[in-house]
């Protein structure tokens, strides 16, 4: 028996070591979220859903804002499915946030979906849809490798880590948390994707409704961050057709943001009014070029509003 156990243990060591080596190869090309859970605690965060994850490039903001806000921003935005405002996201933010003595700012992106829910009673936080997803499940968001994520939440098989290194992948999660993704950028392909998004969010209209509880969690998030630095509320640019849907979803959204802006004395930048300036991959997410321009514009606005 002892001989058996010893042999098994010795043999197991080699494949486990090799697997560990493969996991270290992951550079953000195989999984769209994993890298966010292997980086250390961060000094300042950009929060929101996929619009922010793809549209705000922290490295650009960090360069531009370095003199005023030396704390490095990190994009900790996920998706409308995973990171609407609620207890799961708030707790995860607390775990990701490092102590920092200098000046720092936090960018909190908002839209009607991030304060809505598709459950029967949208004001029952115990039933929030993200409660059984990875932000709620992962207790340690700063460990490398992150076994909990790898075992239960890594989207693909691990061979994809190697395959994506060889193959030219269309997306990459950068070390600063920016999720760079591209695809066929011909007009017809963009229109097709936008059509799909319009259908998708029109369908959401029937399922999602405004959640007072989520709005409270947004306030708790602002409250938490405001104690540590300056909070800026941002509404990301959108194609006009999708904006119409969002207005249907929550006609009072702007007044809610005015309320927050006044209550917490925070800046609110609404970029939906500058829609024509930007290029979209699908009416919702900015193209890479527009994400760069947008990050510059956002930096300028922050600097201007600081004066």
């Amino acid at each position: 028996m002892n001989r058996f156990l010893l042999r098994v243990l010795i043999f197991s060591f080699f494949p486990l070591l090799s697997l560990y080596g493969v996991l270290l190869l992951e550079n953000g090309t195989a999984d769209p979220f994993y890298q966010r859970f292997v980086t250390p605690k961060q000094e300042a965060l950009i929060l929101g859903n996929s619009k922010a994850a793809q549209g705000i490039i922290p490295s650009i903001l960090n360069d531009r804002l370095a003199d005023v806000y030396p704390a490095k921003l990190y994009n900790y935005s996920f998706t409308v499915y995973n990171s609407p405002f609620g207890a799961s996201y708030l707790e995860s933010i607390k775990k990701k946030l490092a102590e920092y003595d200098g000046e720092r700012c936090f960018i909190v992106t908002v839209d009607p979906w991030s304060i809505s829910s598709d459950i029967k009673d949208p004001n029952n936080p115990d039933k929030f849809e993200e409660n059984d997803r990875f932000l709620a499940a992962i207790k340690n968001v700063n460990s490398n490798p992150n076994l909990n994520y790898l075992l239960y939440w890594f989207e693909k098989s691990f061979y994809e880590i190697i395959l994506m290194r060889i193959k030219n992948n269309l997306s990459k999660l950068h070390v600063d948390g920016w999720f760079e993704t591209t695809g066929n950028m011909q007009e017809s392909a963009i229109n097709q994707r936008r059509g799909f998004m319009i259908d998708f969010y029109t369908d959401y209209l029937n399922k999602y409704s405004y959640s007072e509880e989520r709005f409270k969690y947004l306030q708790k998030t602002i409250d938490l961050l405001q104690k540590k630095g300056r909070v800026i509320l941002v509404r990301m640019p959108l194609h006009r057709d999708i904006l119409k849907i969002e207005k249907f979803q929550d006609p009072d959204f702007e007044s809610r943001m005015d309320f927050l802006s006044k209550k917490f004395s925070v800046s609110y930048f609404d970029f939906t009014i500058t829609e024509s300036k930007w290029g979209f991959k699908d009416g919702l997410h900015l193209t890479i070029e527009s994400a760069k321009d947008f990050s510059q514009d956002l930096s300028n606005k922050i600097l201007l509003s600081n004066n």
Binding site: F11, F14, P15, S18, L19, V22, K156, S157, F158, Y159, I162
Partner: peptide
């Protein structure tokens, strides 16, 4: 055996 174990690790969905 090593090859098979690695295949199981890497190709598991």
């Amino acid at each position: 055996y090593y090859g098979l174990v690695m295949a199981v690790f890497l190709f598991a969905r």
